[in-house]
C-alpha cells in the first residue's frame, strides 16, 4: 500500500544540477520557467499534469506511483488542520446564520455534513424563507458548486490510476481549501492519493462541529471578519498561486482567467465567474497548443 517511502524526492532530482534557494527566488519573474518558486520548479517537468509536447503519456513517472494509504491520509489531515481551524470559524458563522433563519441544530448539522460546501450553504440559508423555495435553493447550490467539476477534473492526471471508489469517495470530501492543499501536495511530487481524503476529513470535522457550535450558541459569536477568518480562503489561494506560477507559460492562461473572472463577476450572478474563468483559460490553452 505504501510505496512512497521518500515523499518529496524523486529520481529526477538527482539528475538535475542543484540550485540554491537564492537562484530560485531571484528569478521569480521568469525568463526561465525553472526559476519559479523552487519546489514547484523542481518537479514541474515530471509531475505537471500535461506531458510536454512530444512526450509519451505513458512513462509519466510520477502519477504512476500514486499511492492511497494511511501515509497520505495522515499527511492530508495534519496539513489541513490549521486551515480547517479557519473553516471552523466560518462554520460557526454558518451555524449562527442557520439558526437565525429557523433551522434546528440537527438540520444545520445535517446540511453541513452532507452538502459540505460552505459558500453554497451560506447562500442557501440566505434564500431560506417560509414557503421553502426548494427549486431556487437547489439550483443555486448547483450553480455555485459547479466549479467543483473543474477542480475535480484538474486532479485527473494524478487520480487516473486510482479505483473509482477511492476517487469518488475522496471527491465527496473536496472543498476549496483542501483541493488547494491537495493540488499543492500532488504537484510537489508526493503522489499521495489519500491526501484529498485526509484533508477533507479534517475540513468535515471542523465544519460540522463548528456548525453545531454556532447553531447552539446562536448569536453569541460575532462576525468572523473580526478575527480575519474571512481572509483565510483568499490567503490559501494567494499562497497556492505563488506555487503554481511556472514562469512565462503561465502568464497567458492566468491573464485570461483573471480578465474573464473579473468581468463575469460583474455581470453574472453567483459564482459562475470561477467556472467561466477556468473554462476560458483552458479553452485558450487548447487553441494555443501547438504540437
Amino acid at each position: 500500500m505504501d510505496l512512497d517511502s521518500e515523499p518529496g524526492e524523486s529520481s529526477d532530482d538527482l539528475e538535475r544540477p542543484s540550485r540554491t534557494d537564492e537562484d530560485a527566488r531571484d528569478g521569480g519573474e521568469g525568463l526561465d520557467p525553472a526559476t519559479a518558486v523552487d519546489s514547484g520548479a523542481e518537479l514541474e517537468r515530471e509531475v505537471g499534469p500535461g506531458p510536454g509536447p512530444g512526450s509519451d503519456p505513458d512513462p509519466d513517472p510520477d502519477p504512476a506511483h500514486i499511492t492511497f494509504g494511511r501515509d497520505g491520509l495522515r499527511a492530508g489531515f495534519l496539513n489541513c488542520l490549521p486551515v480547517a481551524l479557519g473553516v471552523g470559524g466560518y462554520g460557526i458563522a454558518f451555524g449562527v446564520l442557520a439558526s437565525q433563519v429557523g433551522l434546528s441544530v440537527a438540520e444545520a448539522a445535517l446540511m453541513s455534513g452532507t452538502v459540505l460546501a460552505g459558500a453554497s450553504q451560506i447562500v442557501a440559508v440566505e434564500l431560506w424563507a417560509d414557503p421553502l423555495p426548494a427549486a431556487t435553493i437547489v439550483f443555486t447550490v448547483f450553480a455555485i458548486n459547479l466549479r467543483y467539476s473543474l477542480m475535480g477534473a484538474a486532479l485527473q492526471p494524478w487520480f487516473e490510476r486510482l479505483s473509482p471508489a477511492k476517487v469518488y469517495g475522496s471527491l465527496y470530501f473536496m472543498a476549496d481549501e483542501n483541493w488547494a492543499l491537495t493540488m499543492r501536495d500532488l504537484r510537489a511530487g508526493n503522489a499521495r492519493g489519500a491526501f484529498l481524503l485526509g484533508s477533507g476529513i479534517a475540513i468535515w470535522l471542523f465544519w460540522v462541529g463548528a456548525t453545531i457550535l454556532g447553531a447552539v450558541a446562536g448569536e453569541l459569536v460575532g462576525d468572523p471578519t473580526r478575527y480575519g477568518f474571512d481572509f483565510i480562503l483568499a490567503a490559501v489561494f494567494v499562497a497556492l498561486a505563488a506555487e503554481l506560477w511556472e514562469g512565462r507559460s503561465t502568464l497567458v492562461p492566468w491573464v485570461v482567467a483573471l480578465g474573464t473572472a473579473v468581468v463575469a463577476a460583474e455581470f453574472l450572478p453567483g459564482r459562475w465567474y470561477i467556472l467561466l474563468g477556468g473554462l476560458v483559460a483552458a479553452a485558450v490553452e487548447v487553441i494555443r497548443y501547438d504540437d
Binding site: 482567467a257 470561477i274 479553452a283
Partner: peptide, 26 residues
Amino acid sequence: DRLEAGLSVLPGAIVIALLGPELAAG
C-alpha cells in the same frame, strides 16, 4: 495532448479566477 494541455492550466486558472474578484471586492 491538446486537451491535456488545456486541463493542465486549470488549477492555476481556477485559483486566479476565484482570487481575482475576491480581492477586487476587498
